[in-house]
Design a protein around this nucleic acid. Structure first.
Length: 879
RNA sequence: GGGCGCUUAGCUCAGCGGGAGAGCACUCGGUUUACACCCGAGCGGUCGUAGGUUCGAUUCCUACAGCGCCCA
């Protein structure tokens, strides 16, 4: 049995992401929508991706970051900008080398078995076969990046940028080599910069040791007893009366037989412990400074693996084995005065492998950051770069204003090798990108490579072709926005600001900045607000969400949680809710399409439209401005909420129901309703597209027959005068319908059950045109012959509307009394609150007139409500 | 130890000088021809504590408590 005129009901009732996304994405890429043209006349809009690690795969942090960047670029593209979102990865020196070394270790080999050249080749092979998984995963998220411009920090072009800036900084005296205490990872066998060290409060021990003799001794406390083997002094505060007489004398260092001086140093805290500190200049940054001030010997007692290199019985012991051994030996010698265990103190760990970092004296390369950091700070102080949200700028300043020199050399093989050559007679040559290194056996290149951040600091310029003056650089630099988590502010943002301002300085201050805006988002947490971590086992894999709920739902969830600069909690329920929203949108569109919604044709003149039409059209116009405002302020959570509320709470819940009535009317009314439906849906889909690109693309092409929403125009708010009367009437309809439904519900009527009812007072309330709508939405039939109302309700909408219903059954008067009493209590509370205010002459004198008027109006409404409700209550049979 | 931030409905969060909000969860009812990934109705908060400013404070100020982050 078929009926060609019946609406199609065989359409699926939910969007199927798995069957749709990959194909749509490929179509977008093939059509070249994401390719940016440097020769275009359109204004540029540029975002460079914070390059993910080549070893990494997509985690929630990326998914969030990418959703926001994609939404921003998609909107600008629709607004007519030449939008470029540039993808790529960094080479992650330590992490990548670790991965390949682990592979080698499976065959019992080390990188040294291969040699440097073969090892690096092996890393490249790994990169080609297994690296960059995240790039495929980005496609699944729907990232509209320009794949033709994909970059990698080890590419020739970017390596050339690295070499160029190294040489410039070197020649400007901003790169230097020095022997310093640096953070050393005994597992990775390399130096680390300060920011690659993570501090945590760990259990340790605090041991107090007596140096010198019984009667001529001095007590020092330490958490690292083994380092006493490298002590070269004891330091006290110069004003400390307890020790003044000892300054300049020597004490015996236990276990070693060495005698070390007691020195006076301002930086010793006399309040801490005994007030005397042991000084190990080669194994502690503070002691190093004391050592320099007092020209103390720097005694290195550990090798690069963290094993003790001196002192007979301890030689060869790992630092953590040596610690108890040294303490035991001291105890046997009667040197231990006190021990505290556990003693909680801050311990630095390698951010890559979590090994406890060892301060180590060694020769490394450093960037002298002071002038660069000053310029980076000034760019934000001058407003050439804006940090969003502005509260976080303070953290940026705290960092750039107190930055230590940056250790850039790494004892690795994978990375940009330092372009410095050493020759005979201590000759040092820094080789630029177009220069031949000195030849001859007596010359050799520095073995170290540069910190990965050194190259990623150049990312905004190197990816656009710097140091060459490319069309890309001319068109797309400075970039528009950098989107990243606030935890990366120090790691990466500061470094980009420093290097790129320096490199681009000849463009003038405002054109040199790498980005106009830095938009910072928060961190992803689990449902109870805890940080996600493998050890906690609370990590949510975005790929599973993509599989289960689709890209749109995943993206919407992340965008909806993104309040600027603040962390967001996530749980499965959240994404399920987003999926439900996608389904809702799908079904609303399905309904509209089944009923002939169209954009083919001009909207009828305003006076030809119904109140509902004008209300929903005004609403979508307001929505456009709201969404625009939130986009400009990076308020993703608010714009998602606005879209959700309008789409579900107004369009689906009310307008679609009212539209059913209008369509049922047929004729011109049905036709204009189809146009209104089409127009509103068209706008909503455009507005939602940056956040949920897939479902909107499917629906929009079906609705409009257009080529693609990706290149469709962004809606503009007309800002026309709103029809407040129409809105008021629709709100009246909503209030009346809701009150009737409430009454029905409390009387135990089934939602679908139709009830005969008589309405009066509707004209006085201005709802004369909306009786059919009210009857339809509230399931009320016309009163037939012999209509005998058994119950009635009264709703105040300007005027009182009375609804008399024939419930043809016993009325639950108790429920009705309860309902009215609740309303009465609320009205009385409202009255007393507002009367109280008005009775206070200080309020009426001092408060603004409009506030007083509002309170008075509220009081009057409350009086009317009380009168109406008490009347109903009195009419009820006695309880 | 220094700095910053947070504390609003069961949960996650908006609001930030004049009527306490959202989503989710929960309760009740539902074969409503778009949708049960749904519909309708409802319950739920002395806005961390104590002071202060103000005609009026969840909103501003101070102190305290708890939690979190960054730095040392």
């Amino acid at each position: 049995m078929t009926d060609d005129t019946a609406p199609r009901t065989d359409l699926p009732t939910a969007f199927d992401p798995a069957a749709t996304e990959a194909e749509l994405y490929q179509r977008w890429v093939d059509a070249g929508y994401f390719a940016a043209d440097p020769h275009s006349d359109k204004p540029p809009y540029t975002i460079v991706i914070p390059p993910p690690n080549v070893t990494g795969s997509l985690h929630m942090g990326h998914a969030l970051d990418h959703t926001l960047m994609d939404a921003l670029t998609r909107r600008r593209r629709m607004q007519g900008y030449e939008a470029l979102w540039l993808p790529g990865m960094d080479h992650a020196g330590i992490a990548t080398q670790n991965v390949v070394e682990r592979e080698l270790a499976k065959d019992g080999k080390s990188r040294h078995d291969l040699g440097r050249e073969a090892f690096v080749e092996r890393v490249w092979e790994w990169k080609e076969s297994s690296g960059g998984q995240i790039l495929q995963q980005m496609r699944r998220l729907g990232d509209g990046v320009d794949w033709d411009r994909e970059r990698f920090t080890m590419d020739d072009g970017l390596s050339r940028a690295v070499q160029t800036i190294f040489k410039r900084l070197f020649e400007d005296g901003l790169i230097y080599q020095a022997e310093r205490i640096i953070n050393w990872c005994v597992r990775c066998h390399t130096a680390l910069s300060d920011i690659e060290v993570e501090h945590s409060d760990d259990d340790g021990e605090l041991v107090s040791i007596r140096y010198g003799t019984e009667d001529d001794g001095i007590v020092v406390a330490t958490t690292r007893a083994e380092t006493m083997l490298g002590d070269t002094a004891v330091a006290v505060h110069p004003d400390d009366e307890r020790y003044k007489h000892l300054i300049g004398t020597e004490v015996e260092l236990p276990l070693t037989g060495r005698r070390i001086p007691i020195v006076a140093d301002e930086h010793v805290d006399p309040e801490f412990g005994s007030g005397a500190v042991k000084v190990t200049p080669a194994h502690d940054p503070n002691d190093f400074e004391i050592g320099r001030r007092h020209e103390l010997p720097m005694l290195t007692i550990m090798d690069e693996r963290g094993a003790i290199t001196a002192h007979g019985p301890f030689q060869g012991l790992d630092r953590f084995e040596a610690r108890p051994a040294v303490v035991a030996a001291l105890r046997a010698d009667g040197r231990i005065v006190a021990e505290k265990r556990p003693y909680v103190h801050a311990v630095g760990h390698c951010s890559r492998c979590d090994t406890v970092v060892e301060p180590r004296l060694s020769v490394q390369w450093f960037v002298k950051v002071e002038p660069l950091a000053k310029a980076a700070g000034d760019a934000v102080r001058d407003g050439r770069t804006t940090i969003e949200p502005p509260e976080l700028a303070k953290r940026y300043f705290d960092w750039v204003d107190n930055m230590h020199d940056w250790c850039i050399s790494r004892q690795l093989w994978w990375g940009h090798r330092i372009p410095v050559w050493y020759g005979p007679n201590d000759k040092v040559v820094c080789v630029g990108p177009d220069e031949e290194p000195p030849s001859g056996d007596e010359w050799h290149q520095d073995p170290d490579v540069l910190d990965t951040w050194f190259s990623s600091a150049l990312w905004p310029i190197s990816t656009l072709g710097w140091p060459d003056e490319t069309p890309d650089l001319a068109k797309f630099y400075p970039t528009s926005v950098l989107v990243t988590g606030y935890d990366i502010l120090f790691f990466w943002v500061v470094r980009m600001m420093m290097f790129d301002l320096y490199a681009m300085a000849d463009r003038g201050p405002s054109r040199a900045v790498p980005f106009h805006t830095v938009a910072l988002h928060g961190l992803i947490r689990d449902a109870s607000g805890k940080k996600m971590s493998k050890s906690r086992g609370n990590v949510i894999d975005p790929l599973r969400w993509l599989d289960t709920y689709g890209a749109d739902a995943t993206r919407y969830t992340l965008a909806r949680g993104a309040n600027p600069g603040s962390d967001m909690a996530l749980a499965e329920d959240w994404v399920a809710g987003s999926r439900n929203f996608v389904t809702k949108l799908f079904n609303a569109s399905r309904f509209a399409l089944m009923n002939g919604a169209t954009v083919a044709g001009e909207l009828p003149a305003r006076d030809q439209l119904t109140d509902a039409d004008r209300w929903i059209l005004d609403g979508v116009d307001a929505l456009v401005s709201e969404v625009d405002g939130h986009f400009e302020a990076f308020e993703f959570a608010k714009l998602c909420d606005g879209l959700y509320h309008y789409t579900w709470g107004e369009f689906c819940d009310w307008y679609l129901e009212l539209a059913k009535v209008q369509i049922a009317e047929g004729g011109a009314r049905a036709e204009s309703t189809r146009l209104v439906l089409g127009h509103v849906l068209d706008t909503v889909l455009r507005l939602l597209h940056p956040i949920v690109p897939f479902v909107t693309e499917s629906l929009w092409t079906a609705l409009t027959g257009g080529e693609s929403l990706v290149i469709a125009a962004w809606p503009k708010s007309l800002g026309a005068e709103r029809d407040t009367v129409a809105a008021q009437r629709i709100h009246g309809v909503q209030k009346l319908v809701t009150e009737i439904r409430r009454f029905r519900s409390e009387q135990g009527l089934k939602p679908g059950q139709r009830v005969a009812a008589r309405l009066s007072g509707v004209d006085d309330a201005g709802l004369g045109d909306h009786v059919t709508a009210v009857r339809t939405l509230a399931r009320l039939d016309e009163p037939a012959d012999g209509f005998t109302p058994s119950a009635s309700i009264e709703v105040g909408i300007g005027a009182a509307v009375v609804v008399e219903l024939d419930l043809s059954g016993a009325i639950d008067f108790a429920a009705e009394r309860k309902r009215l009493e609740k309303d009465l209590a609320a009205a009385r509370k409202e009255l007393s609150q507002n009367e109280g205010k008005l009775a206070n002459p200080k309020f009426t004198d001092k408060a603004p007139a409009d506030v007083v008027a509002k309170v008075a109006a509220r009081r009057d409404a409350a009086i009317a409500d009380i009168e109406r409700i008490t009347g109903r209550l009195d009419a009820l049979p006695p309880a």
